[in-house]
Design a protein around this nucleic acid. Structure first.
Lengths: 136, 136
DNA sequence: ATTCGTAATCGTACTTATTCTGATTTGCCA
DNA sequence: TGGCAAATCAGAATAAGTACGATTACGAAT
C-alpha cells in the first residue's frame, strides 16, 4: 500500500482528510518495521507538538480496520506497519530489537495438515522473531 | 507436563514448595485452555481469599521461565497454560472466546522455505484463532 | 524440635499502555 | 460562508502488570 492509495481509501470511505492522518501514514510508509503508538507520536511531535495521544490511537485503529495498517501485539504493546500488498498474503520475520521486518514467502495455513473440525477458524498469526544485523 | 512433574521441577531447581504454587499449577493442569492472570486469581480466591496479585504474576513468570507454563499474548493480556510435552514441539488452535485449545500436528518452521540470512532467529509464534463449538 | 537465613508473600503504590469523555476545533458539502 | 458532523484536544479513567518495604514461612542446619 502506498501513501496515495491509503489517502484515497480514506476519502472513498468518507473519512476526512487531516494532516495528522497523512503524517501517521507517511511515517509508517517510510519504514519497513513495526512501530508502537509511542514511536509514531514521537516522530510526529516535531510537526505537531501539541498532538494528543488519543488522536494517534484512534487513527491507528481506524487504519487497521480499513486495512491500511497491520497490527501485531508484541512485548505488551500494539505495533503497526503499513500493510504490504505487493506479495499478497504473507508473514514476517520481525527483529525484536528495532521492529524491522522481512517478508516470508509462504503462509503455513496452506501446508498445515488438518485443522480440527470443531473450531471455526477466524484468523491466524505466524511470526518469526529474531535479531537483525544492526541490532546484534 | 503433569502436576507432579512440575512440582518436582520446582524442587530440583531449588524453589520452595508453597500451597499457592501448587494451586496455580493445579488450576492450569485442570483445563486445556489459556487462562489470564485474572482468571487464575479468581479461581484461587476460594482457597486463598487474601491472595496478592503480585504472587500470581511473579509465579507465572517463574513457571514460564522453567518451562512449566507456556505463555501467549492475546487481546492485550498474557495468557498461560500448562506446557504440553506429550507431542513434542507443536502449536495450537485457540478459541478467542474461552481460550480453549486443540493441538496442531506440525510446526511451520520445518516447512517454511527460507529464512533471510541477515536475521538471527530467536523464536517464532504460530497460532490459529477460531471459535469453539460451545462459544459459537 | 528450635533456630535462622532466605525466599515467598502481602499490601499497596506505581508505571505503562490504552480508552473514555466532554469541550473545542476543523474538514467539507450545500 | 455557514453549519454540521467528524476530528482533535486535554486530561481523567481503566486495566494489566511491576516495584517495594514489611511481614511471613519453608526448609536446612543445629
Amino acid at each position: 500500500m502506498t501513501l496515495d492509495e491509503a489517502l484515497q481509501l480514506l476519502k472513498d470511505k468518507g473519512f476526512k482528510y487531516t494532516g495528522k492522518r497523512e503524517e501517521i501514514i507517511r511515517i509508517c510508509a517510510k519504514e519497513k518495521r513495526y512501530l508502537s503508538a509511542k514511536d509514531i507520536m514521537e516522530r510526529m511531535k516535531e510537526n505537531y507538538p501539541t498532538l494528543s495521544f488519543d488522536t494517534v490511537y484512534r487513527n491507528l485503529s481506524t487504519f487497521v480496520e480499513l486495512g491500511i495498517l497491520e497490527e501485531t501485539e508484541l512485548e505488551g504493546e500494539g505495533k503497526y506497519r503499513l500493510t504490504c500488498t505487493t506479495h499478497g498474503h504473507h508473514h514476517h520475520v520481525i527483529c525484536t530489537g528495532c521492529g524491522k521486518t522481512t517478508t516470508l514467502a509462504s503462509c503455513p495455513m496452506t501446508v498445515i495438515p488438518q485443522i480440527p473440525t470443531d473450531f471455526t477458524v477466524t484468523g491466524h498469526k505466524f511470526e518469526v522473531y529474531g535479531t537483525c544485523k544492526e541490532c546484534s
